[in-house]
Write a protein that binds this DNA or RNA. Structure first.
Length: 419
DNA sequence: TCTGGGGTCCTAGGACCC
DNA sequence: TCTGGGGTCCTAGGACCC
């Protein structure tokens, strides 16, 4: 059996831990710049507010119903996520962290326990220790476990835990499950399936494997098998290093000036280098992009995008910043208002075992020592060291409704500029 | 006025090889 | 007009996820 532990309305639930008076009230959490809705309480969902709705388009509903809004507070959510993961780790032989608010538990080899009460107890435990409501679904495959967890959200009498394993029970659930609610069936496949009369997960199961392979490829086959109770999606207990790392933001208003845009890109570059070092990787390719506002259709659109291979793989903030600076000057166009920019690191390999030329060994050793020192200072002291070209201004963004850093306090620290 | 950020995997097609 | 047969590797784009 596999379990899925899925936090209900996760970002909203984190905010509610410190604002219990908001339980039972409509609440939403916003993306960067307070742009879009990225989390909703059940009450907000009931008002018709959709995931991804721009705030300005649902302003009326928000004002009319007194919906409480929060700017996203990612450090807070990451901290809750960490606490819940530690509870899950104590409760299962192996866990696979799937996202900030979901983890699979590998229960293969676990027997002689009552899975239904295990699921309910695990949910209760998470709630008791963190204040976050968590749905736990248990089933023979990951896809079915997802569906079981979904059931917990619809049926409170399940008390947060659902064990779904009997063939007839599974069939009953799949007959009622809209095809678009199946994990892996997205917005492109849904209309194609509905066109041929496949409206539920059960209908999908009745299709021939051959049809699925021809029309939906290997992923379709995996979904089909999983729904039939045959595990087809692997279990990854150890988090593998990311194959690409992207840092990008939309700005609260357009940036025209090169130096100002460069400051932002340098920040993304530095964040990228830090993430590379955190996973003990180096990258051999950097992509820098800078876009105009795609919603202002009447204005000139510029989608600057450049990808540069690096002669030597690196994790050095200094090298990465330098390359990104050159890249940006190649794509920057004077007189254009940039609304979004970012840096992507790819061709990522472990830092151990990378090949260095005889000319670069010394350069590299120096950078490596410097980066280690900076990372150590930044993680263990109340100072923050960064490259001077980042400038002294924060990333240009709005977040007018952010909650306090209740459990994390690394922000608003003294800043030291070097280099 | 206002529109998120960060990933993964698969596939088709092109370039190139013999 | 018509144009072999088989392979590999790379990349861009599609589709999906949270």
């Amino acid at each position: 059996m596999f379990a899925l532990a899925d936090c209900n309305n996760f970002f909203v639930s984190c905010e509610r831990v410190f604002r219990p008076e908001l339980n039972g009230r409509p609440v939403v959490v916003l993306s960067n710049n307070d742009g879009c809705i990225i989390a909703r309480s059940n009450e907000a969902k009931a008002l018709g507010i959709k995931m991804g709705d721009p705030l300005f388009k649902v302003r009326d509903i928000i004002n009319r119903h007194g919906v409480t809004i929060f700017s996203g507070n990612m450090p807070l959510y990451a901290d809750f996520s960490r606490r819940i993961r530690s509870i899950l780790r104590e409760s299962a032989p192996q866990i696979e962290v799937y996202s900030i608010d979901e983890a699979f538990l590998d229960l293969r080899g676990v027997d002689n326990i009552n899975f239904d009460s295990y699921a309910k107890q695990l949910s209760l435990r998470c709630r008791k220790y963190t204040g976050i409501p968590v749905s736990v679904g248990i089933a023979p495959t990951k896809t079915l476990a997802k569906i079981a967890a979904q059931l917990c959200k619809s049926y409170p009498k399940l008390r947060g835990g659902c064990f779904m394993h009997r063939k007839e029970d599974i069939e009953k659930v799949l007959r009622k499950l809209p095809i678009e609610d199946v994990w892996g069936i997205g917005r492109r496949s849904t209309p194609r399936l509905k066109d041929i009369g496949v409206n539920t997960a059960y209908d999908f199961c009745q299709l021939s494997e051959e049809w699925i392979r021809r029309n939906m490829g290997i992923n379709g086959i995996r979904i089909w098998r999983e729904l039939h109770g045959i595990p087809a999606i692997g279990f990854e207990s150890s988090a593998s290093a990311h194959q690409s790392i992207c840092n990008s933001r939309s700005f609260s208003s357009e940036i025209y000036d090169f130096t100002e845009l460069l400051e932002q890109v340098v920040k993304f570059a530095a964040m990228t280098a830090e993430k590379l070092r955190a996973q003990h990787s180096v990258c051999s390719r950097l992509t820098v992009f800078a876009y105009t506002n795609r919603f202002h259709e009447q204005e000139i659109q510029q989608c600057g995008h450049i990808s540069l291979p690096l002669i030597e793989p690196t994790d050095s903030t200094i090298d990465i910043v330098r390359t990104c600076r050159e890249a940006l000057s190649d794509i920057y166009v004077r007189g254009v208002g940039y609304k979004k920019a970012g840096v992507i690191a790819s061709d990522i390999i472990p830092s151990e075992g990378r090949h260095l030329s005889m000319f670069s060994a010394e350069h590299n050793a120096r950078h490596s020592r410097l980066m280690q020192t900076i990372d150590k200072i930044n993680s263990t002291t109340e100072c923050h060291i960064s490259v001077a070209s980042q400038g002294m201004n924060a990333i240009k963004a709005n977040s007018l409704h952010r909650s306090p850093h209740y459990t994390t306090s690394w922000e608003e620290l003294p800043v030291v500029k070097i280099l």
